[in-house]
Amino acid sequence: MIHAFPFSAIVGQDAMKQAMVLTAIDAGIGGVLVFGDRGTGKSTAVRGLAALLPTIQAVKGCPVNSESVATIPDWANVIERDVVEKPTPVVDLPLGATEDRVVGALDIEKALAKGEKAFEAGLLARANRGYLYIDEVNLLEDHLVDLLLDVAQSGENVVEREGLSIRHPARFVLVGSGNPEEGELRPQLLDRFGLSVEVKSPKDIETRVAVIKRRDAYDRDRAGFVKSWAKADAAIRKAIITARKRLPKVKTPEAVLQDCAALCLALGSDGLRGELTLLRAARAQAAFEGASEITRDHLRAVAPMALSHRLRRDPLDEAGSTARVIRSVETVLV
């Protein structure tokens, strides 16, 4: 896609955009889970973000987008030695993809035709240093989701099969989307996504008209439309780059740690992942806003997306967990 729909031109869906920008600032936050209706711009946002992100330096032809020649994995037969600029990779993982395609497997073609034992890199390798986007993640087979989350967390893909023993870096931001009415994710998996947001079709006419207007303008003149939004996109890009630089310098006051713990205790979220993600997301938010230290406002801004999917929930409880988080935030952070 040469002209992706500009990220800044997406109408509304602020929580989703915010979550994606935060992961672009600090990939360590973990993946983003976007749950909601069809046709709400989930995939558009992912592609738009990729187009907006600064390019990466990678060795030409390297299957895992290695940064320098020294870091190319030894199994990869990379002849080129040039380091080129590449757009941030965004890899789609289609439903029904086999484990072989995802993690990589023995290269059958080489094995049968030439009798060589070679490794054919999978989608995880291609997504290294970028984004892996899974539409309808809730319909993906459980064992694949397990595998993906494992790799996303460890940042390394280990393949031990068919006489191959191979490992390569696979650091990517996992973006999953889906419609909860068509099936749910196991709570264990929910917990391992860093952030989660709910998107809904806009309900008021004005917003809907605005969406249609922009989309139609984009269709009629791609290059022109992208150009007219280039400035807004560039502003976000700049903010992300500045925030990345500022991130290590953002201070974390003791009181904020206390707040994080108090909040997670009040919500009864399991484990410590909630606190950690909340803290990282708040830090990224602070860096994005140009603050020198994390404040309660930053916590407030990210608490719903960092915690709403971690509540120990009654499987039959339909009340929105986002509402519960907001309520707790109000009572704890007074």
């Binding site: 896609m1 995939s43 289609p94 439903l95 029904g96 993809a97 539409d135």
Partner: peptide, 14 residues
């Protein structure tokens, strides 16, 4: 199947 529909949908989106 869902998988095929997803692939075709992606191809249309391109």
């Amino acid at each position: 199947e869902q998988g095929l529909l997803a692939r075709l949908g992606t191809a249309l989106d391109a």
